[in-house]
Structure formats: C-alpha cells, structure tokens
C-alpha cells in the first residue's frame, strides 16, 4: 500500500511515518502544498493523508484540483480545524474522511484501514480474528455462526478494536474515534467502561474466549492470542 503524507509539521509527519512503518505501509512525505499536489498528480497512491493548513497550495485547493483532474485517490484530511463547517467543506470537495488534531495513532490506523476496505475492496469486506467475524459493509459481527446483537456504538467499538488488533488502544483514542465530540474526560471514561463491559458480556455469552482484555492504566486490547 502506497501512502502520500502531505504535512508541513516535521514532528507530526515523523510520527505518522513511524506509525505507518510499523504497519508496513510504503509512504512518501511532502512538506508543502505545491510539492504534495505535484506528487499526487504524477504518482499512483492508494491514499493521501492531507493537512489543510499548508505552505503553498492549501489542503482545500489540493482536494479541489485533484478531483478536478479526475484523480480519485482516497484523501484522508488531518487538520487542527475542528469546526463543523471545515469538515463539511472538506468532505464536500471530495475527501473521504476527516480527523481532527490531536488524534491517537489507533484512530489514524482505524480510519486508514476503514478507507482501504471501502475504496480498494480488500479481498472482501469480512475481517476474521479467530472465531470472530466482522462484516464492515453490513456492520454486523458474528462469533462462529452466531450473530452478535450489538448496538451501533458497540459495533463501532468492536470494529475499532479489530482494526487495532493486538495493539493497546487508550480510552481517549476510543472516545475520539467513536464520540468525536469533546466530552468531559470523566464522563467519557465512564461511557467507555460501560460499553466495553456490555460488549464483553455479549461476546462471552457466545464464546468463553476473552477477546477484549484490559491493559492496566493504558486501555484495552483485542487479541486472538490465548495466553497473557
């Protein structure tokens, strides 16, 4: 998978490249708008991670120009602009997803994977982890042959954990991914605890394997490994 990162802040782009490297993605980095636009125009990428505020062409202009040139590479916007109007504008211009800064690595990965599934028809839209099966199109989950009866939030939570399989995800990452709005930490933490515990109960009804584990202090992890 080939990803183009257009981000003028060196530290952010370093971090993103570190995250992507760990997931074995190939990537190019561009530090200004004009260069990013040229690269996106001349090379075939599977995804463009685009900052909005850039020297040279800004993010909006790049999206507009690329879509104007019939380049339909998925674009994931990454911006400090958190106002609804900016989100709506970026999505209307033709970007595929929008992440507000600050964001967790887990959130970035989940969104990248989600875009890949949607846009590149990754073998199928079914993700399997041991006996757990997720249909990302229908938003349904099964364990073996039994369908899990999940609420929307619970499904999103499960999908998020699945996308970050075998990685610890913090409560904050979950909160930012699923609720998006700026909830008070105390409230959000309680929310997540309740949803995780509900999700666990539902899963353990069908199978005695513990998929979701609590990592002390850090958060949660979904894993298919037996021990630990």
């Amino acid at each position: 998978m080939n990803i183009l990162i257009v981000e003028d802040n060196l530290r952010i782009s370093d971090n993103i490249s570190y995250i992507l490297k760990n997931e074995s993605y190939n990537f190019d980095i561009s530090y200004n708008g004009n260069d990013g636009y040229q690269k996106a125009l001349n090379n075939a990428y599977d995804l463009i991670i685009l900052d909005l505020m850039l020297p040279g062409m800004d993010g909006f202009e790049i999206i507009e120009a690329l879509r104007g040139n019939n380049i339909d590479t998925p674009i994931l916007v990454l911006s400090a602009k958190s106002q609804v109007e900016d989100k709506v504008k970026a999505l209307n211009l033709g970007s595929d997803d929008y992440i507000c800064k600050p964001f967790a690595a887990a959130e970035l990965l989940a969104r990248i994977k989600s875009i890949f599934r949607r846009k590149h028809d990754l073998s199928s839209n079914i993700i399997k982890i041991d006996a757990l099966k997720l249909d990302t199109n229908k938003k349904e989950a099964w364990i073996k042959k039994n369908k899990l009866d999940l609420t929307q939030k619970e499904y999103e939570l499960l999908e998020f954990l699945v996308y970050n399989k075998n990685k610890v995800v913090s409560k904050i990452a979950i909160g930012q991914y699923i609720w998006g709005e700026s909830l008070d930490f105390f409230t959000m933490s309680n929310f997540i605890d309740v949803h995780i515990s509900n999700l666990r109960k539902k899963m353990e009804l069908l199978c005695n394997k513990k998929y979701i584990r609590t990592k002390r202090g850090l958060g949660f992890i979904l894993t298919d490994e037996e021990n630990q």
């Binding site: 600050p102 967790a104 690595a105």
Partner: peptide
Amino acid sequence: HEFKTPIAILQLNIDNIS
C-alpha cells in the same frame, strides 16, 4: 489552532511510547 498541533505531536509520541 496553534495549540492543537503540539498537543497532537505529544499525544502521538506518548501513544507510540505506550
């Protein structure tokens, strides 16, 4: 906006460490 970028960097750094 200027605060958000450093916070993003910090969060990513801490994420990676964790």
